[in-house]
Structure formats: C-alpha cells, structure tokens
C-alpha cells in the first residue's frame, strides 16, 4: 500500500491532535510537580514553572511509605497479571471453541459480575476472606484482584480466540498435533496481541485499584500506592497538590515504562502473525 504525501501529513496531524489531548494533562502535571505552592495558586497559570525545584518530590518521598507502597503495588499487580493470564487462557479457549453448557453460565456470570455494584460485594467478600486469614495480606488482595479481573480477561480473550481462524488449528490437528500442542504452538502466537492487551489491562487495574485495597489492607506496611496517594487529599476538598502531583508523576512513570516495553511486543505479535499467514 502506498500513501500519498497529503494523506500522510494529515495522518501525522491527526496523531498530533490525539496526543495533545491525551498527553497534555500529564505534561501539566509534571510542570505542576515542579511548582511551589505559591506559584501553584497563582491566578495566571504558566505552563513552565518559573522557579522549578524538587521540594515537592522530596516532600512526597518523605511521606510514610511511598516507596514501600509502590513496591507493594508492583508485587500485587505483577502477581495478579500472571495469575489472570494463566487461569484465563484455557477458559477463554474453551469458551470460544466449545459449545459447552458452561458457556452461557460463564457469560452470564461475566455480565452480572461487571454490572452489579461492587460496593455491595465488598462486605460478603470480607466475611469470607477473614476466616481464611486472607484479610490484611498481599495474597488475599491478589486473589481478589484475580477473580475480579477475570471476567474482563475472559470476555476479551474469547473475542480474540474467536478471531483466530479455526482452519489453522484444524490443519494442525490433521497433522496429528494434540489440542494442547495446537494451543501452545498455533493459537498462542496469534493471540499475542490479545494476551498483551489483557495483561496491560489487568496490570493497570490492579495498580490503580483503591476500594478493595482500602478495605482489605490495614497494616501500614502493606498499603498500596493509591491508598498512599489518597493521603494528600484532605477534608473539604483541600489537596496538597504539589506533593500529590510529584507522587503521581512517580506513580505514573512505572506503568508508562511497562507500557512502552509491552507495546513493542504488541507489534511483534503482528510480525510473527504475518510470517505464519
């Protein structure tokens, strides 16, 4: 396919517009994190800080357990992501490929679990976790996150599995490959973009989750990042914005790095698919 220069120019322009819309708030956040409270409250906002300094960052890092909470969040998010992928792939495959009775049941559960107000589930959930000694522990939070990210992962993954041409698998099974082999060597590579999208979603929803963590984790040593960030918000809408902006910048960077790393895989999924196709 060849693209005309004008079309190309328009494409760049369109991408630029999108990026301004999506990224401007972050740039502004970074700029704010370098501003003093006085400058922050100034009536004429300036895009670049006049006297940039890092005191907001030192204030944020001084905050009890910010770094600790980032490590906790990282641990929880990675564990959740791995578990979700391991558990959801076989189920999604079964949902997309077999017309089993479990399919309508599962899809029903997926819908209801996404629709029913989660806040009303917290209390029964809490009462189940307590006798299992899972409240106030990281594994407890991981399992809860896994279970609650699963519906999305299944719903998405079965869409991606369904998009993998059945013929490829059938060709393989004609060649005598077992079902497992077929999944691992044929379906998985084609599914890579879908798996990565699911992984990103799971990771980020665990990284950002607030309410379950608030209820389940009481030990200050175990607090996750969103819980610590909430600390900068006081009563009656008072916000310590400088330190909050600094802490948010620190909190956003790891996910972005993670994304930058993953999105490259998103492309390589395409390449390997193209080779096989």
């Amino acid at each position: 396919m060849r693209t005309r220069p004008t079309t190309r120019a328009l494409q760049y322009l369109a991408v630029l517009c999108y990026l301004v819309f999506l990224a401007f708030p972050l740039l502004w956040l970074i700029s704010s994190s370098l501003k003093s409270p006085q400058e922050f409250a100034s009536i004429t906002p300036s895009f670049l800080p006049k006297h940039p300094d890092l005191s907001n960052f030192s204030d944020a890092l001084e905050e009890q357990g910010l770094v600790r909470s980032m490590l906790n969040s990282l641990q929880i998010s990675v564990a959740t992501t791995v578990l979700v992928l391991v558990v959801s792939l076989p189920v999604a495959y079964a949902l997309a490929r077999f017309r089993s009775r479990l399919r309508p049941v599962t899809n029903g559960w997926i819908l209801v679990s996404q629709v029913f107000p989660v806040i009303l589930i917290v209390i029964p959930l809490f009462l189940i976790l307590r006798p299992l000694h899972l409240t106030n522990t990281i594994p407890g939070v991981v399992i809860v996150y896994m279970v609650w990210s699963l519906p999305f992962a299944l719903w998405m993954l079965q869409g991606y599995v369904a998009a993998v041409p059945r013929e490829l698998e059938e060709a393989a099974s004609v060649d005598g490959a077992s079902r497992v082999r077929t999944i691992v060597s044929i379906v998985m590579p084609l599914l890579r973009p879908g798996l990565i999208a699911t992984a990103m979603f799971t990771f980020i929803s665990a990284w950002n989750e607030f309410f379950f963590a608030l209820v389940l984790l009481q030990d200050p040593q175990l607090k996750t990042l969103p819980l610590v960030l909430a600390r900068f918000v006081g009563a009656e809408g008072q916000v310590q914005f400088g330190p909050l902006a600094a802490a948010s910048v620190l909190a956003t960077v790891p996910s972005l790095v993670f994304f930058a790393f993953l999105q490259r895989r998103l492309t390589s999924g395409l390449l390997s698919g193209a080779v096989k196709g």
Partner: peptide, 20 residues
C-alpha cells in the same frame, strides 16, 4: 495508622460491618 478524610466514611462502614 494513617487514614484520610476522603475515604474515612466508606472505610469505617466496611470495618464496622466486618468487625475490624
């Protein structure tokens, strides 16, 4: 233990309900 004004009500509702 550090709490926050923003979430104290929700947190207490669940904590009371769960006995913690």
């Amino acid at each position: 233990v550090q709490g926050s004004w923003d979430s104290v009500h929700d947190q207490l509702v669940t904590q009371f309900q769960g006995g913690t």
